[in-house]
């Protein structure tokens, strides 16, 4: 699914060069659940952004679903992104002017899905996330847990092959956090690949594999049995 080799990312200001990623290589197979961990500033988010085709690497190779994308155009990356990738953020990143339903509907609109099919799909996924009763509410009328469920719903509504989650439980209390982790696990079990950045050892245990980063480099990869509660 994902194969990166010697990936580099450098941030430059006028005086300082910072290597955010230094020769990072890793592979994620179809159906895997991978957690990326490491201290603040270690390059986790940079890596996730590159994996999500939101950012470009400065060096190295990156194959996404078999195609090389390290130097792909913005248009091509946007195309792949909307077809194959769903995002879940720590701060939910829902659009405040849109209702729950409309937020979830948005990726389908950009994909050019017809209205009737959108209705059906959104309804389906909202049912699954158990927030159908909130469909006409605006994000600020929901609790944090509910907002993150909407965000997950939005991430999966177009059945992406890959979900990238950036500290998805970071803004949630533990019970809401667990709920979200359960959701992700269920998605993984139905075949969706998940890459998750997290600070939480607890959350990381839901993953098949943990990649630890330090100062922009992979320091450790350890496999463990999927966590089952």
């Amino acid at each position: 699914m994902i194969k990166i080799e010697n990936l580099e990312k450098i941030y430059r200001t006028e005086e300082v060069q910072t290597k955010a990623l230094n020769n990072v290589s890793l592979a994620v197979s179809e159906g895997e659940f991978v957690a990326i961990m490491g201290p603040s500033g270690c390059g986790k988010s940079t890596l996730l952004n590159i994996l999500g085709l939101l950012d470009e690497p400065d060096g190295g190779r990156f194959a996404f679903a078999g195609t090389e994308v390290a130097k792909a155009s913005e248009r091509r990356r946007a195309e792949l992104r909307k077809q194959h990738i769903g995002f879940v953020f720590q701060s939910f990143n829902l659009i405040e002017e849109l209702t729950v339903f409309e937020n979830v509907e948005l990726p389908l609109i950009y994909l050019g899905v017809g209205a009737a099919e959108r209705q059906e799909k959104v309804a389906q996924v909202l049912e699954k996330m158990q927030i159908m009763h909130r469909r006409n509410h605006f994000p600020q009328q929901l609790s944090g847990g509910q907002q993150q469920r909407v965000a997950v719903a939005r991430a999966v509504v177009n059945s992406p092959r890959l979900i990238l989650a950036d500290e998805p439980t970071g803004n949630l209390d533990s019970s809401n956090g667990n709920e979200v982790m359960e959701l992700l696990t269920e998605l993984n079990e139905t075949g969706t690949t998940i890459v998750m950045v997290t600070h939480s050892e607890h959350d990381a245990r839901y993953a098949h594999r943990v990649i630890r980063l330090l100062d922009g480099a992979v320091v450790l990869e350890n496999l463990h049995q999927p966590f089952t509660a």
């Binding site: 248009r75 946007a78 995002f87 659009i95 405040e96 994909l111 939005r154």
Partner: peptide, 14 residues
């Protein structure tokens, strides 16, 4: 800006 970021992430083109 944030809205733009979200929309782009979700798949909106410029």
């Amino acid at each position: 800006a944030k809205e733009v970021g979200i929309r782009k992430t979700i798949g909106a083109s410029q």
